[in-house]
């Protein structure tokens, strides 16, 4: 089993996105980034990541819709939603029913990310 994982990060906040990518790279994984839902979907198709971190509040397409699309493309996709508290209950419940792996809250720490990646990727 390959120790090195492919991680996809989707977030519209570039600073946070870059910092998070830097931390995960520091763990020794390959990191791809996307800045909105649509971008995230096309990147997912391209790179087939082992694990995707997806922010919910994003322009163009929000994290839930992007998650639903990805799940349509790849039912086995492993996605972690980055959420404060769930802004849209219906979509959250729907996501849970579509085998959402987990959700984490901002601001997340290095240890949180590391734990999640080790657990699911």
């Amino acid at each position: 089993m390959d120790y090195r994982k492919i991680i996809l990060l989707v977030d519209d906040d570039v600073d946070l996105l870059e910092n998070t990518a830097f931390m995960i790279k520091g763990m020794g994984h390959d990191v791809f980034t996307a800045r909105d839902g649509e971008d995230g979907i096309s990147k997912y198709k391209d790179v087939k990541p082992n694990l995707t971190f997806m922010d919910i509040r994003m322009p163009k397409m929000d994290g839930y819709d992007a998650f639903f699309k990805i799940k349509q493309i790849d039912p086995a996709a492993k996605v972690i939603l980055i959420t404060a508290y769930n802004q849209d209950e219906k979509k959250y419940l729907k996501a849970k029913s579509m085998s959402l792996l987990d959700s984490i809250s901002k601001p997340y720490s290095f240890e949180t990310l590391e734990g999640i990646i080790n657990k699911y990727a």
């Binding site: 600073d15 946070l16 931390m23 509040r57 404060a84 809250s105 901002k106 601001p107």
Partner: peptide, 20 residues
């Protein structure tokens, strides 16, 4: 509150990166 979370996340992760 939600909008503050991203900057907080950036600061948090920034400090983590510096420490490590």
């Amino acid at each position: 509150a939600h909008d503050m979370k991203n900057p907080l996340g950036t600061i948090q992760s920034g400090m983590d990166i510096i420490k490590r």
